[in-house]
Write a protein that binds this DNA or RNA. Structure first.
Length: 643
RNA sequence: GCCGGUGUAGCUCAGCUGGCAGAGCGAUUCCUUCGUAAGGAAUAGGCCGAGGGUUCAAAUCCCUCCACCGGCUCCA
């Protein structure tokens, strides 16, 4: 037998016999590790410990200390679910049951399940865990496997598709239950510390809407009950922060059935925040050399045919007929901006030309997709388009990335960056795409930013760098993008005159800082849990007179703090009630004034973090607010010393 | 768009084995003028998502549509 070499995470090569498995390799490293091996990661794929290795494979040994262990555990939990389901509903047919980022699901069919049924299944799952059944892997030949699944077309589908080449199929068995499965799994059902079935929904076989609809049950599993509880608390917290709930409670925005789905209405409180965001973006853009432009919402479809949108995007467009001529609401701002660029002649000295517009666009998303502000039909992009010479691309993109990261920093959001490459439906030649992707990659490599690759996720006209927001709860949301576009300038025949007095084609860069105001607003609402920084807060200060006698003084104070958004609580409530109300409205500062304050000409200040100070001078407070606002500080900090 | 669930007062929800439309919060009015997270009383408020059907009678049963929620597929 000849030896093969596998590569360990630290880069060293390990020589093992041909045909050696993950577990054999682990034993070759050390007997302790061999004994603890649960599974392996071979070439990035989580596999069973009995998987044979090939020469040159990248190998990571998975033990119960590894991050991947939880995936394995959840995969086994999916089997426990399936076993429990079949005990209670023998008619149920199984399809697939993988692990996911935060649990597992199992797609089943031939069984009617409702939310209420989950409890009984969960109880049965706990019994199975209690029984501590050994989980054993067995290899079964193809014929026998097909026989086992004589009445399960989905499993047969798997046998004839994914597992087409294999003569021996791996099955996992625990007690009376067995399932066709690649693995890996834990040693026994008793290893699963805690399980919870979460919800029930529907999915298509293989995710294709042409196929049968299956019942999908989502669940999760952890090593311990306390981990599960932490997870459930986190879900609860996320539910409490839901921007749809807070949007209603804080009167930020509404989506009304009468005015239409996916068409948000911004109430004054929401609009105040949007205006602050827009002012901030405008300042960043002006500082970065952008010129504001403005375009209408509606264009002749001639424009969309020229830009390629009609060909690639028409299903998502709102079209309307005007005097027998077809018009379309704009789904993107770029063609308008390209047309503006085309209105005059340009010298190479003029470039880069940078336009920006908070442009409202309309995209006819599938109805079932609409959700709060995260998915809507009308939204506003803080859209910038640059027209640059090829030699300016890298510098410009670097500047844009700087600006985007500044924005992340301002809001205390973490960034996750990815390069999205050519999608199936696209315009432009292979060479152009190749060139664009190479350039974006070069910028990212030079910048030293950590980034991933999203294959096939680019826009139809060019590749892009996607930024995702990571919020205070560690959740990820789609954020701004930077896109390189060689196609639009071509389609619009855009030119500038070069040093050589010849016409040249500029390159277009699409970029946003926020992405869309709607989605960014949603992220901020949930990120801050409605407790917006002072500069964003719709109501920045609320004056609470102790009794009606101080109304006059309160009005005087409101006038003196007139640079800010200051309201007076004028309902005849007790002070406790007024504070409670201001607190639930998440107002950063409460100014409390009674007879004492009025007499001394001072104020008492309380913030939403429940800190307070008396005998405060109005000037000192106002000066502080000025700097807190100008510096966009994240938390009210006038009373930072009062803790 | 597809699958499942849900639509009752401004909000959260009860009523749904058919028989007069309910509660809490909020709002309004009155009383209270209050010192750091809910003072008291009274009043108003509903085409029970929309349309059709069954029935002596429909919030309740049936059908169609609309919207929302959880997913699937797709995107900022």
């Amino acid at each position: 037998m000849s030896d093969i070499a596998v590569i360990l995470p630290d880069g060293t090569e390990l020589s093992v016999e041909e045909g050696a498995t993950v577990r054999d390799a682990a034993f070759a490293i050390g007997p302790g590790l061999g004994k603890d091996t649960v599974a392996g990661v071979v070439d990035g794929e989580l596999v069973d410990k009995e998987t044979p290795l090939h020469d040159g494979a990248d190998l990571v040994i998975v033990t119960d200390q590894s991050d991947e262990y939880l995936d394995v555990l959840r995969h086994s939990a999916a089997h426990v679910f399936a076993q429990a389901l079949q005990r209670l509903h023998p008619e149920a047919k199984l399809t697939i049951g993988p692990w996911t980022d935060d649990g597992f699901y199992y797609d089943v069919t031939s069984v009617d399940l409702e939310q209420e049924d989950l409890e009984a299944i969960e109880d049965e799952m706990r019994d199975i865990i209690e029984e501590d059944l050994d989980i054993e892997r067995a290899l079964v030949d193809r014929e026998e496997a097909l026989e086992k699944y004589a009445d399960n077309p989905y499993k047969r589908d798997i046998l004839e598709d994914e597992a087409a080449g294999d003569d021996e199929l791996s099955f996992y068995q625990q007690g009376e239950f067995e399932d066709l499965c690649k693995g890996p799994h834990v040693e026994s059902t008793g290893e699963i510390g805690a399980v919870k079935l979460l919800n029930i929904s529907a999915a298509y076989w293989r995710g294709d809407e042409e196929n049968d609809t299956l019942t999908r049950v989502y669940g999760t599993a952890f090593e311990s009950e306390s981990d599960l509880e932490a997870f459930l608390d986190m879900r609860e917290e996320a539910k409490e922060r839901d921007h749809r709930k807070l949007g209603q409670e804080l009167n930020l925005f509404a989506i009304d059935e009468t005015t239409g789905p996916g068409l948000p209405l911004y109430q004054p409180n929401g609009k105040r925040i949007l205006d602050e965001l827009a002012d901030y973006a405008k300042q960043l853009n002006l500082d970065a050399g952008y010129d504001p432009v403005e375009t209408p919402h509606l264009f002749r479809t001639e424009l969309w045919k020229k830009s390629g949108h009609y060909e690639n995007y028409v299903d998502d467009m709102f079209l309307l007929d005007v005097n027998d001529e077809e018009y379309g609401l704009k789904p993107m701002n770029c063609p308008g901006h390209a047309t503006i660029f085309d209105q005059q002649s340009w010298s190479y000295r003029d470039l880069p030309v940078r336009y920006f517009e908070d442009g409202k666009v309309y995209r006819k998303e599938q109805r079932g997709e609409l959700s709060g502000l995260s998915r809507v039909w009308s939204f506003t992009i803080d859209d910038g388009h640059l027209f640059v010479r090829p030699d300016q691309i890298e510098d410009e993109i670097n500047l844009i990335i700087d600006n985007i990261l500044t924005v992340f920093d301002t809001f205390g959001l973490d960034a996750e960056v990815a390069l999205a490459t050519r999608p199936e439906k696209s315009v432009g030649s292979d060479e152009i795409w190749e060139q664009a992707e190479t350039q974006l990659r070069a910028v990212l490599d030079d910048s030293g930013i950590d980034y991933g690759i999203e294959a096939g996720d680019g826009a139809f006209y060019g590749p892009k760098i996607d930024f995702a927001f990571k919020d205070a709860l560690g959740r990820k949301w789609d954020g701004p993008t930077v896109q390189l576009d060689f196609n639009m300038p071509d389609r619009f025949d855009l030119t500038y005159t070069g040093e050589d007095n010849e016409d040249h084609q500029p390159v277009m860069i699409h970029r946003a800082l926020y992405g869309s105001y709607e989605r960014f607003f949603m992220v901020l609402i949930e990120h801050f849990n409605g407790k917006f920084p002072f500069w964003l807060a719709p109501e920045q200060v609320r004056i609470l007179p102790i009794s009606d006698d101080q109304m006059g003084y309160a009005k005087k104070l409101q006038y003196e703090l007139g640079d800010f958004r200051v309201d007076i609580e004028d309902r005849s409530w007790t002070l406790g009630r007024k504070i409670r109300e201001a607190q639930t409205d998440r107002v950063p500062y409460m100014v409390i004034v009674g007879g004492d304050e009025e007499e001394d000409g001072t104020i008492s200040v309380r913030d939403r973090k429940e800190r307070e100070a008396k005998d405060v001078s109005v000037e000192a407070f106002r000066d502080h607010l000025r700097s807190e606002y100008d510096e966009k500080r994240p938390e009210p900090d006038f009373l930072a010393d009062a803790e």
